[in-house]
Amino acid sequence: MKKLLVVALALVMVVAIFACEKAPAPEPAPVGDGGDTIVAPVTISTIEAIKERGVLRAGVKDSVVPFGFVGEKERELVGFDVDICRYIAKKLKVKVKFTAVTSANRIQMLTDGQVDILAATMTHKIERDEVIDFSITYFMDGQKLLVPKDSEIASIDDLAGLKVGSVKGSTSEKNVKEAQPDCEVISFEGYPEAFLALKQGKVVAMTTDSVILVGLMGSDDNPEDWKIVGDFFSSEPYGLGLPNNDSEWRDFVNFTLMEMWRNGEWKKIYDKWLGEDTKYYMPLSWEIELWP
C-alpha cells in the first residue's frame, strides 16, 4: 500500500509539473501582415495538399441511410454525401478516399487533419465554427419526432416523462434536452440502433433531423407503420465541414456546390437518393444559396 501511495503521489506531482509548465506556454507567433519583415510560417493550403497527394480524403457517415452507408452490393460507402464528395473530387481531378466518421468523433478527425472535408450530416452551428469552417448550406433540414402510427404523441410537449431515443454527440440529443427537459433521453451510438429500440418499444419516440428519419422509415419493411410528427423544433442547415481559416479551399467548395446546383448535378444526386422513385421520398422545398 505504501508503494502505491508513493506512486500516486509521484503521478500527481508529474501531472502538476506538466500542468504548470504548460499553462504559461507562449502563444503561437502571430502571422505578420503583408510588408512585414517577419517571415510568416509557410502553410500549405489544403487544396494544394490534396492535389499533391492526388487523393481527397473525405469523412462520411457509414450508417445514415441515405446520406452515407455501406451498400450491400457495392461493399462500399454510398449515399448523398458520398456523391457530393465524388463530384468535388472529380472537379479537382483527384481520387477520393472515404473514411467513416461518427457524430462523436467527426470534428476531432477534421481538426486532426485526418480528413480534408466532412460530409457527415453535420449542422452548421456557431459554436462549431470556432474550430472548423463550414461551406454554404448544401442541405436544409430540421428536427422532428418519429413515432409509431398509432402513437398519441403529436409534438415535443407530449414527451414529458417519456423516453426518447437519440445519438451520442449529435445536436439533436442536445436540442431535445433543451426543448423538453422533463423527458428522458436515451443516447445510442447510431441512428439505426435508436430506431431498433423504438421498434421494440424501449423508447416511445426517436428524434433527429427529419431526412434521417425519412431514411430510417424507408429502410423499414413497412414504412406506413411509422409517422413523423411535430414542427421543426430546431433548424438544421447542413454544411460541409472544412479546415479552419483556409479560404481558398472553402471558396472552391462553395463555388463547386453552386455550380452543382446550376448545372443540375445537385438535383440529379438528390433525385437518386431522395427523389420520388426512392424509398426515401422527401419533396424539395428550399433552394441553395446562390451568389450572383
Partner: peptide, 14 residues
C-alpha cells in the same frame, strides 16, 4: 524522497 526522485525524472523527461 521518492516523489522528489520522480520529480527529477519528470524534469529530465520534460
Amino acid at each position: 524522497f521518492y516523489p522528489l526522485y520522480f520529480l527529477a525524472i519528470a524534469l529530465f523527461i520534460y
